[in-house]
Design a protein around this nucleic acid. Structure first.
Lengths: 184, 184
DNA sequence: CCGTTCCTTGACCGATCGGTCAAGTCTGCC
DNA sequence: GGCAGACTTGACCGATCGGTCAAGGAACGG
């Protein structure tokens, strides 16, 4: 399954054939269909595993942070780190979002992650640490920044995960203005 | 080509066959290969058109804004509006980013758009309107927020483009804290 | 030594893919 | 009318796809 994930990640789901996978593992085709009922199911299983792994990493990074804003920050950093170390899974997640067939599953997992962040945001707003804006929108915005920055700077340009995470956190917390008061 | 773009958007690039396209247009296969040398070339042409259209819309929205921050804001709003009105193209752009074959072309166009934003950011920083952070990172972050918010709230949930744009602008400008002073 | 169950093989299947091409139609020019 | 070249057709091609299945180990209890 790890091998298959790698192949899917580098070649894409559709162009990678079952024959490629079993051929590369030097096993017969039968063994594939013994363990998985279809190519589609294999991908869903990989997808599910990847989402669980990311979520576990996030929860571990957060468990001993009391301050809600610090929890959000830890979540961003941890996601960035995880995406850097699991680039093949990252590619898979990106792809899953573009396929009618897999998008719902991806979205479902994403909503769970967002729900976590939403709770922290609500907590922080209640404590007066953050401005009172729709937490769901905020959380999705954070996810968007994290994903895109990871994709661009870590995957495409090979930059350091911690550095990119710093930038992402700074942007999410302070936005463009970053504490500069609007002269208007 | 419009028809083909629609098919690609709703069915995905790989699952949509040339036979589907020509069949749906009630023409022979020959006419397809008369105008395009391959399925791949057709997709690249569609992709290029979509990027040009988006860029034109952005430049039109910006041309009569003097303030750099206002130009950034106008760019976000205009992109959101365009993505809402051209959902099929949006789906295509998303897909192109996941395919080794098309990603470079997508990225090239994206870099052009980012370069525009970078100039505005630099101008604004020089004017003291924004904090002095790497403009390239900032610009990609804006792009990430815009894309993800558009995808989630406009495409998936059918919300109003202007409303989502408001939220995106607010987040980009002020971040999470949104002017709330850090008590620490 | 047999029978049973679990696992593995790879030849094979029908379907479908992207792409080709001989043949034909249409249009306008001489 | 007749010719040229632009355009259109759809049968056809080899390749490859996801998936099946008859056949055959390997391990085990009896």
């Amino acid at each position: 399954m790890d091998y298959a994930a790698g192949r899917f990640a580098e070649g894409g789901y559709h162009p990678t054939s079952v024959a490629d996978i079993v051929g590369g593992m030097k096993v017969g085709k039968g063994v594939f269909y013994w363990y998985f009922s279809s190519k589609e199911e294999l991908f869903l299983e990989i997808l599910r595993d990847a989402q669980h792994a990311l979520r576990r990493a996030q929860q571990k990074a957060i468990e001993d942070e009391n301050d809600p804003v610090r929890r959000i920050e830890a979540g961003i950093r941890c996601s960035m780190e995880w995406l850097a170390e699991n680039r093949h899974f990252f590619a898979l997640l990106q792809f899953a979002g573009t396929e009618e067939l897999f998008a719902p599953h991806l979205r479902r997992g994403q909503e769970v992650a967002v729900a976590d962040v939403v709770r922290h945001v609500q907590e922080a707003i209640a404590a007066g640490q953050l401005a009172d804006v729709d937490p769901v929108v905020i959380s999705h915005a954070i996810l968007g920044v994290t994903n895109h920055l990871a994709r661009t700077f870590i995957l495409d340009r090979g930059e350091d995960a911690a550095t990119v995470a710093d930038a992402a956190v700074a942007f999410c917390l302070n936005g463009l203005r970053g504490g500069v008061l609007d002269p208007a």
